[in-house]
Design a protein around this nucleic acid. Structure first.
Lengths: 347, 347
DNA sequence: TTGAAAGCGTTACCAG
DNA sequence: CTGGTAACGCTTTCAA
């Protein structure tokens, strides 16, 4: 049907071989850095490659070697720039090893996620990058069936069932809570989503609860306001708690979008931040330091997660011939970034 | 070296052929929807495909057909979510036709852009999506040399040298200016970058100038403040003009990042917006409606540009066999979104 | 250390 | 309309 772009027959490995007075096999060996090539020959080949401006055909290489040199990443959403930064870091790290990254987003639809992974699998790839631990069982099944290596990212696995590069969301939430506790806060509210599909959110809520419990404070269910991740939900949460008789002095939002909304609504309602109410989020997404006041939040090392996930996956692929290894789990730091949106609890 | 993920020898077209009592060629024909296959045979083949769960190997297909079914897009930056939305829309539209999208960003480094395109070209692809018209001549040369179809996007071409899907940035800027003029503004300032590498910025500045000129107002060079696209630059611009003896009543920022910064600095300096100063931007990026006050801006139809660019490119690829066609140029609307950051000029 | 040759899974051409 | 057969460009035995 449609004709190729690079229709002009490109220079092949045989052209190089002819010019270098060597065989295609030898040129291939030079290309792949095989040690067993005499220096003189190698130089001739390299010269020929240079002179002919030869560029290996990736498709042919893949076909022949049965390796695709392709990785797929499926992220929850592109609207959270942190995930985009993550993808970009992944891509860069992968590119250094000659791998191509394919990506997609599912906007928190687990069925779509499964479809996307299946499509990628069909297309052919050497590994998959997943965000979070919560995925449909069919997804894990599909991966297992094809012996396709994968890394999970952003959260730590409950049991070490897979390679993983993430942060301890539970602990990060606990640290944030401890910080607020130390500021004298005793009345808390959390804006969180009860939907189980986002384990990052869920763990953060649990971390807050646990740390409060350690301080002898129980977070009642009615202090937990619903909100998955939009500015609107953040605003709505503030509107609700503004009507409470016993207002919290600190509200923790499980992500920065919610926190943005909360900040905005406080301003609209004339609630002083952090004077009357301290607000904190998670993510340290773009613009988090440009809110009024600047947002206190837990920074997610998006680029590092990407970079290390790439390394982890590449390692898994490299050893996929050999015996099963114990899954590697890399835990990255998620530092608390204290800015102006949190302060001492009003006495 | 590294072994494939899907190591288990997958089912090939020959397996299907055997099972359907047909030849590989026939199966291929069925796969590609060739009309010349007897219905009975086609059904047998389809049954076999289904039973064997056969999935064509994309690499082999590419190698054989010399079509890669791959498109590459190189965007300026991932930090502007509009470009990410654009990429995603591109990808979705392309996927519907079985194409895979590769992408990269160059962060406004034209040399890097060239490198990326070259790398993609080497890898093999059927088309390229470029943002803007300003690119290194070597880039155009590389594309031309390989007869690689491409679309330029976001801006309109000066001369119709290539397929293009974009908005008229000049006109959009003129419309925004006219709107401010109608509000009674006479003293303008523009935050723009003089760097020629970003033609979107440049055209917007020109559009403002032209419309002001039509109204008999000359925009002096010292009313143009330097700023490429960061919040910091926006802040700095406001700091500068705040010191002027004759302050503008309206400042147009060539993108929303600058406008965000301008808004923030006005608040910090106690400059009332829009009372004392009207502020407008371009892009309508994420959070543009969540600033205080909400930002008046020109919406860039990022998703539409992506969708239509995909269509345009696919069309170009399809006809790349035939004779040269006149380049198609699709101009999309960039509506002015009036929000609270602009108002009547103080009398 | 090197060359020859056999694939890899498709598509495309050419008979029939 | 269909089957055989030859590529496609590379990697990878297997001998030498």
């Amino acid at each position: 049907m449609s004709r190729p772009a690079a229709a002009t027959r490109s220079v092949t490995i045989r052209d190089v071989a002819a010019r270098a007075r060597a065989s295609a096999g030898t040129v291939s060996r030079v290309l792949n850095g095989a040690p067993s090539v005499k220096d003189a020959v190698r130089r001739r080949v390299e010269a020929a490659i240079h002179e002919l401006q030869y560029v290996p055909n990736a498709q042919a290489r893949a076909l022949s070697s049965k390796a695709f040199h392709t990785i797929a990443a499926v992220i929850p959403t592109i609207r959270n720039l942190n995930f985009v930064i993550f993808v970009r870091a992944l891509q860069e790290a992968l590119a250094r090893d000659g791998y191509t990254l394919l990506f997609s987003s599912h906007e928190f639809d687990m069925g779509l996620e499964l479809d996307e992974v299946r499509a990628f699998l069909a297309r052919g790839l050497d590994g998959v990058v997943l965000v979070g631990q919560e995925h449909l069982p069919q997804l894990y099944a599909a991966l297992a069936q094809r012996h396709c290596p994968y890394v999970t990212t952003w959260t730590l696995p409950r049991e070490q069932e897979s390679d993983c590069v993430g942060v301890d969301n539970f602990d990060a939430a606990a640290r944030l809570t401890r910080y607020l506790l130390d500021l004298g806060h005793r009345e808390f509210s959390v804006v969180a989503s009860l939907a189980p599909t986002n384990d990052r959110n869920a763990l953060r809520l649990q971390g807050v609860k646990a740390e409060l419990a350690r301080a002898g404070i129980e977070l009642a269910d009615d202090r937990i306001l619903e909100g998955a991740g939009s500015i609107e939900e953040g605003k709505s949460a503030i509107r609700q708690l503004a009507a409470w008789q016993r207002r919290p002095t600190a509200v923790i939002c499980v992500n920065d979008f919610l926190a943005f909304g909360a900040l905005l609504e406080c301003e609209a309602l004339g609630i002083e931040v952090p004077g009357e109410l301290s607000i904190a989020g998670f993510g340290d997404i773009q613009f988090a330091s440009d809110t009024r006041p600047p947002l206190t939040t837990v920074r997610m090392p998006a680029a590092d997660i990407g970079r290390f996930a790439a390394e982890s996956l590449l390692r898994a692929i490299a050893r996929s011939t050999g015996a099963a290894h114990a899954p590697s789990v890399l835990k990255l730091e998620a530092p608390l970034i204290v800015r102006g949106s949190t302060g001492r609890a009003r006495p």
